[in-house]
Design a protein around this nucleic acid. Structure first.
Lengths: 201, 201, 201, 201
DNA sequence: CAATAAACGAGACGGTACGTCGAGTCTTCCT
DNA sequence: AGGAAGACTCGACGTACCGTCTCGTTTATTG
C-alpha cells in the first residue's frame, strides 16, 4: 500500500483536489465528470469534497478559477490593439485551447440554475478576463486607436462572445485564424478609426 | 377508462409529444425536465419516447426544432439593415424571449457530448436562423448599405453570439435595448459605410 | 416479401400456434418465453394470440394441453401395479422428460394467481393424468394387489407429488431410477399387501 | 458469501430490509411484490437492494431464509413418529400456513432459471428442514418404529412433496387433516412395521 | 508524552432520473 | 372479414450519479 496518507494542511489539500479536478475535467469533459471520479483521482473522500464545496459545479468553478498551474490572463502590450487582442485570446490563457470551451459548455446548465454559482463564475472567472480585455481597449483608446466615444463595454464583449459561440454552440474549433478574422472584419472596422484599421491578414 | 382514444394519423403522435415537451420545457426549463414528466404530460409511455429519440436532449432538440406553433424566423424587410435586424432578433422567434436561452443553456452540455445531436441542432435550428440573418445582410449589401468586401459570415454571427453570451454566460436579460446597442455600437460602425451608420439610438 | 399469408381455418391456425408455443417452450422454458417470440415463431400477430387466449399462461396451458403430437398418457396394462406405474410415469407422456418440469415450474406463479387458469390446468392437464393413475390403482385393487380399504386418492398422488418436488423444488433430474425407488420404497410397502411387495429392484 | 461489509451496524440494515420484505411478501404475495415497494417499506433505496442482492428472487430467498422472527423448524419429540411428524408439519414453521406456499410457488420460476439462487434456496431453506425431517425418521428407526432397511431419504421427502403438490399444483389448502391423512395412509403403512402402525385417526 | 478534538478516507446509504423490457391493447393496412 | 404488422400504454426492472451520513483512523494540538 501507499505510505501513510496524512491529512494535509488546508491549502495543500485543496490544491491537490483542484489538480485532480482539472485533470479529470480535461480528460472526460464536464458532464462526464463525476464526484466519485474526482474523489478517487484525488485519493479523497466525497465527504471531503462536499465539506468544502456545494457540489460538482461549485467545485469545478473553483478548480478552474483557482488551480495552480492554470495560466492567468496577462495584459500584453504590443503597442497596437490588434496585437494585444491576438496575444490575449490566443495566449496560454486564451480561448484557443480545448479545455475552456468544454468547461464552459458543461457549466452553462448549472450557471443558469444556481445563482450563487453564477455569481462566483462571473466574479472569479469572467471578471478578471473581461477586465484585462477592457484594459486593452482602454489603452488603445488612450493611444487614439479607438474613437473616444466608442462603447468599450460592448466592444470588449465581442471577441469573447464570438469565440464562445463558435466553440460551444457552433461546435467549431476556435483558432488564431478565427480570432484574427473577427478582429479584422468586425472590431477594427467598428472602432471608427478607419485609418488604423487598414492592416489586413 | 380510455378518454377518447382517437385514431392516430401518421406523425400525429409526434406532434402531441412535441407539444408536451415544449410545454414542460417552458414551465420548468431544460434541466428540470424529465422524461417521465414529458411522458405523463403527453399521456405517452417512456418506451415510446425512447423508441423515437435517443434521450432527453434529442427529444428536446427535435421538439424545439419541429414543434408546430413555434414561431419561424421570418425575413423582415424594413428597407434598412438596422430595422431588419431589430425585427429579426426582437420578433416572436427572436432571442428576447426567455425560452430560447433556457433551452440553449441546457442543451449545450449534450451538444458538446453527442455529435449526432450537435449536427441535428446546427442543421435544423441554427442553420435556418443563420440563413435568415445572412439574407438580411446580403440585401443590405445589395442596397449598398454594407461594403461589398465585408465578411458577411462573420458579421452575421456577431449578434447571435453576443445575445447568447449575454443571456447564458453573463446571465443578463437580452432585451431590445441590448440588441440595438450591439447594432449601433458594433455592427453599423463595422460595415464600412460610415455615411449610412450615422443613425443613433 | 413472403408470399401471400392467407387466413387459415380456425382449428388449423390454433394448431400452428400451439406448435410454435411448444417449440419455444422447449427451447427457452416458460419464463423466458415471450408473446412476441411466439408470435414471430408462428408468423402470427400478437393480436391474434390475445384474441383467443387470456395471456401467456393461458396460451401455454392450452398448448401443453391440446397441441397435436404431444403424447397422451395411456393406461398400460402389465398385469402388475409396479409395471403399470413405471410404464405410466416413464413413458412418452411421463415426467422423466425435461419439458413438463420446466413448464410446471414456470406456471406455478400464474396458477396461484389466476383461478380460471388454475381450473383449466387442473381439468385439462392434471385430471386426465390423475384419472389414468387412479385407474391403474383401481385395477390393482381389483386384482387384490392393493388392500380394499386403501386410500387410492392419496396413494395416486404420491408419485406425481414426489416427481414434481424432485424436479422443480429440489431441482434434480427425475429418471426411471427415482420413480422405481419411490414405488419400491414407499408405494408398494404402503399398499398393505406385503406378500405382493416382495419384488425388489 | 457476503464479504464482511460494514453498514451502520453489522447486518443491521439487512435485518430491516428482510423484515420489510417479509412484510410485503405476506401482504401481496411473491409475484405482486416489487422492489420499489420493498424499498419504500424499508425506507431504503433500490440501489441498496441491488447492491446486496441480485434481484427480487435473491432478496426474497435471503429474507425468507434469514429474517429474524421467522419460526425455525424445531425437532419435536412426542415419542412416536406420527406425533413428531404432525408437530413438525403443522407447527409454526410448518406448511399449513399460507405464506410458505405462496412464496414457494412464486420462487419456482426464478429457482429454475438461476442456478446460484437455486443452490442458496436448497442449502439455506430446504436443507435444514429436510434435516429435521430426517432426524425424526432416524429416531423412529432407533426406537424400532421404522424398519432398519427403510429408505429414509425417500420417506422423508414424501410429506414435503405431497404438501407442496397439494398447496401449489392442486391449489388446495394444506391443513392438519391432510397431513394426518398422508401419514396414516401412506407413511405409516410404508414403514414396514405394521404392528406399530395400527394407530388410526 | 499521552489525551483529545478536528479533519480525513472509505464507502454505504436515500433519493431521483435514467433507459430497458415484456405484457396486453389498439389501429392500420393488406389480402 | 379477418389477420399480420407493429406502435402504443403501463408498470417494473436494474443502473448511475448526486449529496448525506457513519465509522474508524490519522494528525495536530492541548493538558
Amino acid at each position: 500500500m501507499t505510505p501513510a496518507q496524512r491529512p494535509r494542511v488546508e491549502g495543500d489539500r485543496e490544491e491537490e483536489i483542484f489538480a485532480a479536478t482539472v485533470r479529470v475535467l480535461a480528460e472526460v469533459g464536464y458532464d462526464r465528470l463525476t464526484m466519485d471520479q474526482v474523489a478517487a483521482e484525488a485519493r479523497a473522500s466525497k465527504a471531503t469534497l462536499y465539506r468544502r464545496w456545494d457540489g460538482k459545479a461549485a467545485l469545478v468553478v473553483d478548480a478552474v478559477t483557482r488551480a495552480k498551474g492554470l495560466p492567468d490572463p496577462t495584459v500584453p502590450d504590443t503597442g497596437a490593439l490588434r496585437g494585444d487582442l491576438v496575444g490575449l485570446f490566443c495566449g496560454p490563457a486564451g480561448v484557443t485551447e480545448r479545455l475552456p470551451m468544454s468547461v464552459l459548455g458543461g457549466l452553462l446548465t448549472a450557471l443558469h440554475t444556481d445563482e450563487d454559482l453564477s455569481a462566483a463564475w462571473r466574479e472569479r472567472f469572467l471578471a478578471p478576463r473581461m477586465a484585462v480585455s477592457h484594459e486593452v481597449f482602454r489603452r488603445a483608446q488612450e493611444r487614439g486607436e479607438v474613437s473616444p466615444d466608442a462603447d468599450l463595454e460592448v466592444l470588449g464583449t465581442v471577441l469573447p462572445s464570438m469565440c464562445a459561440f463558435h466553440g460551444t454552440v457552433l461546435g467549431r474549433h476556435v483558432d488564431e485564424e478565427f480570432v484574427a478574422r473577427v478582429i479584422d472584419e468586425v472590431l477594427l472596422p467598428a472602432i471608427r478609426r478607419p485609418d488604423t484599421a487598414t492592416s489586413d491578414t
